[in-house]
Write a protein that binds this DNA or RNA. Structure first.
Lengths: 69, 69
DNA sequence: TGACAATGTAAAGTTGTCTTTACTTATGGA
DNA sequence: TCCATAAGTAAAGACAACTTTACATTGTCA
């Protein structure tokens, strides 16, 4: 019953042919943040989530999901 | 060009006739978190945003918006 | 082979999310 | 008037988001 956030950022990023560094600079965070994010190592802020979803033009809910494990 | 998060949680909460405490317990955070959130004092995590949006059955984008100021 | 681009790992530091506790204030009903 | 409920303020602390720097790994191409 511990919730975590699962995301498909990596899928959308590679689908657009972007590097992690390019995406990082597009949404104004460090490359480390993108790496850790794609690895599912942490729960981003809604600000970052909205920026990334906005960049890929998909609803936040499509990129980020609550996973119960 | 500094981004902040603006939200309509208070509007949706009162629209449903809920108290801050009830909403807090629904989404499993403290009452303080709801108070601070409604006052726009901070940027919540995507986990909390998804929980609140899910509870009100609205898209995250409708509840939380990036505001430039 | 050597160099470069992309990704990953590690670690330490800063900031800020969220908690807990406790006190204050306003409103309304018995 | 008194009590209960709802909302607000304050402050200290835990821990997690995000930064910066630096080095390692892999694949590709001249």
């Amino acid at each position: 019953m511990k919730e975590k956030i699962q995301n498909d950022v990596s899928k959308y990023r590679t689908g657009k042919g972007l590097t992690q560094e390019e995406l990082a600079s597009e949404v104004e965070v460090s490359r480390q943040t993108i790496i850790a994010l794609e690895k599912g190592n942490y729960t981003p802020s809604i600000l970052l989530a909205l920026k990334i979803a906005g960049y890929f033009k998909v609803p936040v809910e499509k990129l980020f999901k609550i996973s119960y494990e």
